[in-house]
Design a protein around this nucleic acid. Sequence first.
DNA 1: GCCAACGTTGGC
DNA 2: GCCAACGTTGGC
Length: 156
Amino acid sequence: MAWWLFKTEPDTYGIDDLQREGVSPWEGIRNYQARNRLRDEIQCGDQVFIYHSSCKVPAIVGLAEVVQAAYPDPTQFDPASPYHDGKSDPQAPRWLRVDVAYRGHAGTPLTLQAVKTDPALAHLELVNRSRLSIQSVDEAAARHILDLLAPLTRHT
DNA sequence: GCCAACGTTGGC
DNA sequence: GCCAACGTTGGC
């Protein structure tokens, strides 16, 4: 079981939306490195920190779990979708998505500022490779983040 | 809204 | 396959 951090813009799709839906596809990933991680590394049961970017207070705001491993993202073939990719071949889909299930809100969101200033977290991709939308989190850091998020409010 | 960082594209 | 131009991301 591995730990990840998925970025999302709350104005588009945030932790509240995920809570409302319970389980949701994580779609619209259009970056090869992120796609490769979805394809090669992410497994059902992996834990996912949800991070809000491009907003007033960028922060880790909750937890989710991968409940369906990678499969083709249908939005790439939908001309009406903002994620449409006319160059993707239906016989060899270029983009993938996974399904995630809501696991809880952070009692206290862990702000980017706090991540940057915490020696135990300063090595995270969130700090060093901030543009990557699918980031890996080592277990020690993950445990630390969980402590800082506590209490996690779970709604099921 | 600015702009630095960085990913993608395409001419050669 | 290099690399300049261009587009996007995202914190500030």
